[in-house]
Amino acid sequence: MIPSTLRLATPLGFAALGGIYSERAGVINLALEGMMLIGAFGYVIGTQASGSVWIGLLVGIGFALALALLHAVATVTFHADQIVTGVGINILALGITEYLLPTTEQVGGLPHWKLPFIGAYSFIVYLLPVLMVASHILLFKTPWGLRLRAAGESTEALAALSLSRAKWQYIGVLLSGIFAGIGGCFLASEVHYFTKGMTAGRGYLALAAVIFGNWRPLSGIAACFLFGFATALELANRWNIPGQLLNSLPYILTMVVLAGWVGTSRPPASLGKMQS
């Protein structure tokens, strides 16, 4: 159960981390799904072309970053509707990957590190908790994080310090591309190939984790582990519970939290607001 939970939660965790940076800077990011998908695609294409998984990883991140840039240009520079742009990017990613569908030839996976007491996992799995803690410190304990969050909370505060909101929003969205891209690369690296639409809604699930975790790295990634565990339970299926019920549990929980019935979930104050 633990190994599959870790493997299922890691791609979610990276995408959620990306979502947190973007949404903390005030930009709604539905494009996580598309960024993950193109990241997975880039990993496979890059590895097939070069023979090196490291080049594959870079290509995957690069592709996701390109989509993130598109999202940032449309939403931050042109003030286009963030939700519609996100949906557009997801359709774009689905189309590009279907158009350039790589061969089914298997590719190598990212290296696994063997640690005492834990076992052997892809190094990406170990990277997640490190980045989670680092992101928490960065966002909540440094002036850098304060500014990024100010872009999502209070535009007046940024203006008073004569800082550019657009610059911080670009940073947030581009970071989300990098992290969602890594998540996608991990996904492809674990199964060694790419299939059409292989992210299968994981980007949206990551977004749910962001909300569930109240837009905070520690609780957001904890939510990813919870969601990953729910999926692992479904795969193990020992209690004869319909798998689909376990499958939809994360979505139901997110709705409950969002409605404020259990705990509270408060989005950044200026999330999605562009005109100012």
Binding site: L70, A74, A80, V84, T85, V87, G88, I89, N90, I91, L92, A93, L94, G95, I96, E98, Y99
Partner: peptide
């Protein structure tokens, strides 16, 4: 499909 995505954006 890709064109449709670009069209939306």
């Amino acid at each position: 499909l890709a064109g449709q995505g670009m069209l939306i954006i």
